[in-house]
């Protein structure tokens, strides 16, 4: 069942990025059903949930610096993200252990395609950003986190989001 917050009628689109359902199979998306809409300067990426019914759309996320994302990549990222969070042990402190999982490594393997998705995650996670920083550093080969912000996850997230404004 798709959460109501995910669905928006065509006449009542919201700027809110809805909570994403955990199950991948509810989307039933294809690239053909991705379209974009500019609204008030922000660009939303929208997709029809059910091809046979054009009454509902889902917001895939506000694009990062107007980068167009591929729906299949996005779905793959969502699935890997869920896998990573389900598989990892939350009592681990080791960054190597946190990022060694197959799903996290596959996210890194998505390469630059993953960057807008990761940045979107960082933005949505607010005060408690997750450990996306090694992935971003591994993919980009860059490090916008100043020495004084190392380990301060909110500042690290802000540094990467600022980096994204000029690099994505």
């Amino acid at each position: 069942m798709i959460a109501d917050t995910m669905l928006l009628s065509r006449g009542a689109r919201s700027r809110e990025t809805p909570t994403l359902p955990a199950r991948q199979d509810v989307y039933r998306l294809s690239e053909d059903f991705i379209f974009e809409e500019n609204s008030g300067g922000a660009r939303f990426q929208l997709a029809t949930i059910e091809p046979e019914s054009q009454d509902y759309v889902a917001i895939l996320g506000v694009s990062v610096n107007y980068t167009t994302v591929n729906a299949k990549d996005w779905l793959r990222f969502q699935w890997l993200k869920d896998q990573w969070r389900n598989e990892r042990n939350p009592i681990v402190s080791s960054v190597e252990t946190l990022t060694r999982s197959k799903s996290y490594q596959e996210i890194i393997g998505l390469g630059e395609k993953a960057i807008p998705f990761i940045l979107s995650e960082l933005r949505s996670e607010g005060d408690e950003p997750d450990h996306w920083f090694p992935a971003l550093a591994a993919i980009t080969g860059e490090n916008p986190v100043p020495p004084e912000s190392r380990g301060r996850i909110q500042e690290m997230a802000l540094a990467w989001l600022k980096w994204g404004e000029t690099h994505v």
């Binding site: 450990h131 190392r150 380990g151 996850i153």
Partner: peptide, 30 residues
């Protein structure tokens, strides 16, 4: 309560504002 703001290595060092780890990407505090 649970938080990602700091980890055990930091907590043992009285630091509840940073995640300490010697990661090779220079993201975390060391």
């Amino acid at each position: 309560d649970a938080t990602r703001r700091f980890n055990c290595i930091a907590w043992a060092a009285y630091d509840d504002g940073r995640w300490w780890w010697p990661d090779p990407f220079l993201q975390y505090y060391w």
